[in-house]
Amino acid sequence: MFKRFGTLLFYAYFGVFFLITLGLSSYFNAFHSTPPQPVPYPHVKHLQAGLQCLDCHQSANKGKYAGLPPLSFCMSCHQSVGTNLPGIKTLTEYWKTKKPVQWNRLHRIPDFVYFSHKRHVTAKTKNYPNGVPCQSCHGQVQNMPYPMRKSRSLSMGFCVGCHRQNNASLDCYTCHK
């Protein structure tokens, strides 16, 4: 009696952990994994071809948001370049049907955080005399194949660590307006 009952207890104990893991796994899959994009855009190819971050994300040094280029900007090259690639065919399809590409956003900070790209890209500190490089928050995007991946947590600890190192303001009001 006890032997059988005891074995069942083990199944129950490990079963609970099993279920928790399944739950955590599906939560991670739904909210934190790298999402697929409607068009398999590889950053590495475009930066190797000589483009710079600011060529496409044109308002990164002008405003709060870095911005995405309009489809017409992509098509200015891709009407003639790489037209036989499957990704470009998908892109052309969007262009012909006049639908915007709905990219899945990766880097999102909460609403209660005020963040300006311009303030960071144009900042001049001892460590970053030419402004904070894009890579310090977005990772080595110039080497990133498809899919684009979030490589820093962008948590408060991450922000504050860098602020402290660069003698940037640590006042709550700086970010939480």
């Binding site: 099993f18 893991t21 399944l22 796994s25 991670f28 934190h32 994994s33 979030k150 948590s155």
Partner: peptide
């Protein structure tokens, strides 16, 4: 966050 992947959870199972 950057260590995690779905495969890691599967391995855990």
């Amino acid at each position: 966050y950057i260590n995690m992947s779905v495969q890691l959870y599967n391995l855990f199972l």
